[in-house]
Amino acid sequence: MPIVSHKGKTMPESPIRKLVPFAEKAAKEGKHIYHLNIGQPDIKTPIEAMEAVRNHKLDVLAYSHSAGFESFRTKLAAYYAKHNIAVSSNDILVTTGGSEALIFTMGSITDPGDEIIVPEPFYANYYSFSTQSTIKVVPVISKIETGFALPSISEFEKLITKKTKAILICNPGNPTGYLYSKEEIKQLSQLAIKYDLFLISDEVYREFVYDKSEHYSILQEKGMEDHAIIVDSVSKRYSMCGARIGCLVSKNKSVIETAMKFAQARLSPPTFAQIASEAALEAPESYYTETIAKYKSRRDTLVEGLKKIPGVKVAMPKGAFYCIAELPVKDADHFAKWLLDKFDLDNQTVMLAPAAGFYSGPDKGKNQVRIAYVLNRRDLSKAIEILRIALEKYND
């Protein structure tokens, strides 16, 4: 019988989605599930985006340019200018989600067997994309005790080899919510220049920063023109996860030209989704401010509630809408399944994402979970209460 590839066998399961069968079974049993496992915002998509699709005047749903609509890329350049990132439309390649931007990046800058250093825990699909690209993720460990701050530069230097091609960060971070400081970005930039590496920054949560903090992009750093690659997306910024529109941004012409060949091979990004995404850029500033205020209040509700549960440790997120919590359990994966399969409180339960899937090693993050605070404050409070009682019963 024909067998599947080694690459296919080594592709990791999604820690976010692998519990879906348990959730589906629980739902069929009539349980109400509070979904804290996935970063699907409940914020409404900008009306400008929806109206643009409803009122389109297309007679033929045709291919777009492989790099995406020129009008969209021009407006994206103007958007970046507002964030003190000076790029032109020619520095931008529209992709089918931030995921494709990462895949194009890895395909453009690495060969099989090359290495990328990533602070851990990291967005689980970084490992999936590296497996597809037959390259190695080399983790540099950040810890909950420091709020998942950037490890020392000396820890990065210990890991650099002849095969190292890039450092990849998520800023603000998924799954930790950590926001890299301007000084930390400068340190990483200097390291990239010193060792002639690429510095890739996943900045899809750029707007979502709290406590009067400010986001600082790698493309704001002078001297990084040849080294910096930004991965971006409309998914979280405009609550448009289903649009699957992102972009790759770099002033390195060789990177853009190479990624363009990958873009041509997949023909073009989706037309209707580009129409919606371009229109979303016209959303008023109030859309951002109101959304950020909601997430900050949800973060505060979640963290304050978690801190009141005996044995739970949580790092205060500075951005995005995720946090990592350490639970008083040995195996968070088993606990998450138990919550769906064996437990309910008044026919209600909670779905979590076991954090082990956000680490590269098999024995790390075993008692941690990632929580997405995308529910309203009332539902978050209820979910926290269910989690508190569940932990008491689980540990009885």
Rank of each mutant, 00 (worst) to 15 (best):
M1Q: 11
S5P: 05
P12V: 07
P12N: 09
E13K: 13
P21M: 05
F22M: 12
A23K: 08
A26N: 01
I38E: 13
P46A: 09
A52V: 12
V53Y: 12
H56G: 07
H65S: 13
G68R: 08
E70Y: 07
A78N: 09
Y79I: 07
Y80W: 15
V87H: 02
I92A: 06
I103F: 08
D114Y: 13
I116Y: 00
V118A: 10
P121L: 06
Y123I: 11
Y127W: 13
F129E: 08
T131Q: 14
I144K: 06
A149K: 10
L150D: 01
L150T: 00
P151N: 06
S154E: 14
E155R: 11
E157W: 05
K158V: 11
T161K: 02
K165Q: 13
I167C: 03
C170G: 11
G173F: 00
G173Q: 01
L188I: 05
L188P: 01
L188K: 03
L188C: 07
S189L: 06
S189F: 03
A192L: 00
Y195Q: 05
L199S: 04
L199D: 04
S201F: 01
D202C: 06
M224Y: 01
D232N: 14
S254T: 14
A259D: 04
K261A: 09
A263Q: 10
Q264R: 15
S268D: 13
A283Q: 11
P284T: 11
E290R: 15
T291A: 08
L302H: 02
G311D: 07
K313N: 10
M316S: 05
P317Q: 04
A320L: 00
I324G: 02
L327V: 07
D331E: 14
S360C: 13
G361V: 09
G365F: 04
K366V: 03
V369K: 03
R370F: 01
V374T: 09
R377Q: 12
A383K: 00
I384N: 04
I389H: 11
I389T: 15
L391A: 00
D396M: 11
